[in-house]
Nucleic acid binder design. Structure first.
Lengths: 258, 258
DNA sequence: AAATAAGGGTTCAAATAATGAACCGACAAC
DNA sequence: GTTGTCGGTTCATTATTTGAACCCTTATTT
């Protein structure tokens, strides 16, 4: 193992449950010599990756990590992470794939991949998506803060088509179903002839920060095709969430109820 | 320099402005051999500290950092605690508010709230702040360990603008004034046209662990406005300190001299 | 109050891992 | 088709890392 690897592996010893450790304990857990361990810790401390408590002499993770994490987050939100997944999904399904980002309790389309075929669903970047009548909206509500859900279903729900669910109770039922299924389904709720599936992308707090959706003409959407697309979109959203946060999806998901 | 230090120094090459870099460029900027650089990057990548774009082959900061930063935040929730105060200050003043954290006797910017207006001061997350020429620096020095102050004012002081105080004695006088006033003031000491006020956030030992600052264009800063912002920033820093430590501000403050 | 144990930190010869000049293949510009 | 650039690799040389033994201080035990 490289020296660098050893140093970083020391950082992995810290967790929510054991946020501080003494030198001897760190050396024991890591399986390194005490002298080695200390030299590594000093190197890490010089760059703010760990810091030492002045009194207890114990070590904990440092503020330098926060700084780097913020740099990453600042310039690396959804877009770049999600793009390859959108391309892959678009290629695999030959349907329109779009990514929406949550902004102040609304969903904003930020990225769209259209398949190279004539009859397809068109989605425009910059469009706001109604929460109660799109697959993206349902997926978002399934992992949104309670107050967002309340707000979204409080005011009168517009009927975009004859299929649109306008009863808050009925929408809420769909949201529940989405949570259980892992992806949402919307049959012509926003536009006639369009059938969509979507899944939420979770942020580090466990709440949805965006959604990934596949929209197809209803004529090409058998029950089996819908399920297939749903699973694909859920898997992609899950991977995006994990790459974005550096944590397992279940850990993220559990954070909310915990 | 230790190998670990070299590896971490590579991470410091990334910033908001340059979030991605190629191998040759990284090697050039770091001053290491290309082979060495690559080996370090591979080590870092194995732990998710950097990741490589599949297409461009460029490197960027990785998601593993986010995970560790979250663990630290759980133990030391400066960001979470401070965020609402930053928002409130930014809204109240309509100016740029930023939070810096102390790392090894340096101050680094970890959180910034920009107001929604055209003419504003821009501060980037990840920037280090010189101690003698920024309001944040003065506020920090006013509550830093004596050896930190000595170190900071020992080496020659750089003049960033024609306003920068480069005499250690003059800076020390400002630090004293800051302690009496409760907040620091810096008139274009770091950048022409920028006027800042700042206050220290204290840790449980009574020393500064970070600073909160409001930076505004000098054209919008009357004497009255400066005083108003100063009081606001001091009040916010005080509340953050109290919430963070679960102790009264005066108790924290008294700890040092005691 | 002397003895013992445990933790943080340090030293230096020996062992090991890091280094970098040179090289490869791919691509782009001229 | 030559030249330059970039990502990536190799391997003999070189410098860093390693760890047993050590010191110091602070509890805990006898």
């Amino acid at each position: 193992m490289s020296t660098v690897g050893k140093a970083i592996s020391l950082l992995d010893l810290f967790s929510i449950d054991t946020p501080e450790l003494g030198l001897t304990e760190i050396a024991r857990r890591a399986g390194f010599d005490k002298a080695t361990t200390r030299r590594l810790l000093v190197s890490l401390a010089r760059h703010g990756f760990v810091e030492q408590d002045g009194e207890t002499r114990h070590y904990r993770l440092g503020a330098g990590l926060t700084r780097l994490a913020r740099i990453r987050e600042a310039r690396f939100p959804l877009l770049q992470t999600a793009l390859p997944y959108l391309r892959e999904l678009a290629a695999a399904t030959s349907e329109t794939v779009h990514l929406a980002e949550a902004v102040n309790g609304s969903l904003l389309t930020v990225l769209v991949e259209h398949p190279a075929r004539a009859n397809r669903v068109n989605v425009n970047v910059g469009e706001y998506l109604p929460l109660h009548s799109t697959a993206s909206g349902l997926a978002y509500l399934a992992h949104a803060r309670p107050e967002v859900v309340k707000e979204a279903l409080g005011s009168p729900l517009a009927a975009y088509t004859s299929h649109t669910l306008t009863e808050p109770g009925a929408v809420l039922k769909e949201v529940e179903a989405t949570r259980g299924r892992g992806y949402s389904v919307m049959d012509q709720g926003f536009e006639d002839g369009v059938f969509s599936v979507a899944a939420a992308i979770l942020g580090s707090g466990g709440y949805a920060i965006g959604t990934l959706a596949v929209a197809a003409p209803v004529v090409r959407t058998s029950k089996a095709a819908a399920a297939e697309r749903g699973k694909a979109v859920a898997a992609a959203a899950r991977e995006i969430s994990e790459r974005l946060n550096g944590e397992g999806f279940n850990a993220l998901r559990g954070r909310v109820s915990a």
